[in-house]
Nucleic acid binder design. Structure first.
Length: 592
RNA sequence: GGAGCCGUAGUUCAGUUUGGUUAGAACGCCUGACUGUCACUCAGGAGGUCGCGGGUUCGAGUCCCGUCGGUUCCGCCA
């Protein structure tokens, strides 16, 4: 079938094109039949243009009567000025006086109407993603994503980085997230794993002297999903040799700055740096949201309530826990709000929520006031610098748990009371993360970031076996850092261990035996024996960067073919079953 | 693995609290009228396995149990 090539897109034409003869190809977005005149909106991803067809146009008038929504059409004609311009769209001053109208392809009646103000559920939109993507809202996101992609590679190219591809089929390592496995046909009973990240490869590339590596790559983690987590996601992965933390910060920060300049036309100021410990104490999170009005920092009142006589607090203080809280400025919250917040902190595993309502009439309302002396109450008030009209919320319990719960409560309050300034993007580096954490469940020491992370130089001595108590070990800080934007982790990285002796001490502490280590990471350690340079790197969550630029937290809105929270692809129906022969080839028997 | 919310026409929802005649509305779809619309308007029409399975009941969209799917949160995600 032949068709006329388009001379313009549906977003191109304006008043300066009047009298030109043009050809537009696109989809029927709307048909308005006024009985004697048709107005047809033709759409492509660039825009929408109005076609005007009257009986005098001849055959096109007949064709128009048989046209439906989402038909693919080709239309030729002369650009004319509209009698009644539509100022709301860029092409609104003109229309096409149609001389030729061809249906290139019909469309079945669509399961939902393709319109900007979409009514269909996400479920349906994902199943018919190709229809969903015809909406400007989604196609704009996809276009933006492409522009970010190009900006990133352009930036790193100008900085002398090499784009190097790493394998998608690699070896499974049980550490970290659950792997997606791929069975081997040639080696029955053996499996490849899809990369959780190209971590080991990029470190080997440094040993190879590749110096500055960059790749935008897919990563796979078989864990439970969230709005900002997909089973397969995209990382901007980079690694550099002969660098320290500040070098990595510079390169990464400049990349972000370049993207924001390109996409938003904004020159970002340099990003502040805060240690993990300070972030946890101040915001109850290692990814603090800095756009909250009044900042809403955590106030520690453990010392203030010591021996106050209120059993709950006394018990917590005596067992080494903490009592701390947040101040909600200028809000006298209702009973209903308190109940709701109490329920929320309980869902976080906290015992309850104490509060002081400092009413504007000077009275104080609190469920714990009858247990606590007026002096202590006044001290608490002073600590928070609470004024009439403020409400103070207190949580108590084991220190880290309490801080993390306060961090969540802070976000909940900010959301519920609309305290987040959505008009800005606030970045912050978080560094000096702990090297190790103690996993209560497994009752063992685990690597907080990953096992190749370099401890801070001044703390190297703590790795020695004679200092191996849990408290010392978990106090070790690492050359490890996250970039946080608007309370969302944009990425993380570290300076890596390049010396075998340090690496072995880390393995020791993680209780990994030689054979196990050899089997899993032998190739990397082997590589390190042949002159590994000091190196470090970073990995950005590409989807989250794009989502932020698109003004959403839901990365699905920025991915062409996203999966649901149960890791299904509704459009193509993956995962699906396979034929018995395929299983036989792989030597796989399915057990349910 | 745990908790919450949702599932009714092609679509978005109402109806579920308190079980009871023929399950409604809007948009879309079909037919007709209309020459300046852009959410066109107007008149008429078709369209339902109330997610699925079981149970209670004379009777279930409505109550109970299970299950599937969507979504949010906790755990998990080095």
């Amino acid at each position: 079938m032949t068709f006329k090539k388009r001379t313009h897109t549906c977003g191109d034409l304006n008043i300066s094109n009047v009298d030109e003869t043009v050809v537009l190809n696109g989809w029927v977005s709307s048909v308005r039949d006024l009985g004697g005149i048709y107005f047809i909106d033709i759409r492509d991803r660039y825009g929408i243009t109005q076609l005007r067809i009257v009986p005098e146009n001849g055959e096109p008038y007949d064709v128009a009567s048989r046209i439906g929504l989402e038909f693919v059409i080709s239309s030729s004609g002369k650009v004319i000025a509209r009698e009644n311009p539509n100022r709301n769209i860029p092409t609104g001053e003109i229309e096409i006086d149609v001389s030729e109208l061809t249906v290139l392809n019909k469309s079945a009646v669509t399961p939902f109407v393709v319109e900007e103000d979409i009514k269909a559920s996400e479920e349906l939109r994902f199943k018919f993603r190709y229809l969903d993507m015809r909406r400007k809202k989604i196609s704009d996101n996809i276009v933006l994503r492409s522009r970010v992609f190009q900006t990133v590679y352009r930036y790193f190219d100008s900085e002398g980085f090499l784009v190097i591809e790493t394998p998608i089929l690699m070896k499974s390592t049980p550490e970290g997230a659950r792997d997606y496995l791929v069975p081997s046909r040639i080696h029955k009973g053996k499996f490849y794993a899809l990369p959780q990240s190209p971590q080991t490869y990029k470190q080997v590339l440094m040993v190879a002297g590749m110096d500055k590596y960059i790749q935008i790559c897919k990563c796979f983690r078989d864990e439970d999903l969230r709005a900002d987590r997909q089973p397969e996601f995209t990382q901007i992965d980079l690694e550099m040799s002969f660098v320290s933390e500040s070098d990595v910060f510079n390169v990464c920060e400049n990349m972000i700055r370049e993207i924001w300049k390109e996409i938003k036309g904004i020159e970002l100021e340099s990003f502040p740096v805060m240690s993990y410990d300070e972030a946890l104490l101040t915001y109850g999170s290692d990814k603090p949201e800095l756009r909250i009005k009044g900042d809403m920092k955590i106030t520690d009142v453990t010392g203030t309530v010591e021996d106050c006589g209120f059993k709950v607090f006394d018990d917590v203080v005596n067992s080494g826990g903490m009592v701390a809280g947040l101040k909600l400025e200028g809000r006298e919250v209702t009973r209903k709000v308190i109940d709701n917040l109490t329920e929320y902190v309980k869902s976080l595993g906290m015992g309850g929520l104490a509060y002081f309502r400092f009413n504007s009439d000077g009275s104080v309302q609190s469920p714990v006031s009858k247990f606590i002396s007026e002096t202590v109450q006044n001290n608490i008030r002073e600590k928070f610098d609470a004024k009439n009209g403020d409400t103070v919320f207190l949580l108590s319990g084991e220190k880290k748990r309490t801080l993390l719960a306060l961090g969540n409560l802070r976000l909940k309050l900010a959301t519920d009371f609309m305290l987040i300034d959505e008009s800005v993007d606030r970045f912050i580096w978080i560094n000096d993360f702990p090297l190790f954490a103690f996993d209560d469940e497994a009752n063992q020491i685990i690597a907080e970031h990953h096992m190749f992370t370099m401890p801070k130089g001044e703390e190297l001595y703590k790795l020695d076996s004679d200092k191996c108590d849990i408290e010392t070990i978990t106090s070790i800080r690492a050359n490890c850092y996250d970039l946080v934007c608007n309370g969302s982790e944009f990425g993380s990285g570290s300076i890596r261990i390049h010396r075998r002796d340090i690496q072995e001490k880390v393995f020791n502490i993680l209780k990994l035996d030689k054979q196990e280590v050899e089997q899993k990471f032998g190739f990397l350690l082997k590589a390190f024996e042949y002159g590994a340079p000091p190196h470090g790197g970073f990995a950005f969550g590409f989807d989250r960067i794009v989502a932020t630029l698109c003004g959403t937290k839901d990365i699905r809105e920025t991915i062409a073919f996203p999966k649901t929270t149960s890791a299904l692809s509704l459009m193509d129906g993956s995962p699906g079953s396979v034929e018995q022969k395929q299983l036989d080839d792989l030597g796989i028997v399915i057990k349910y």
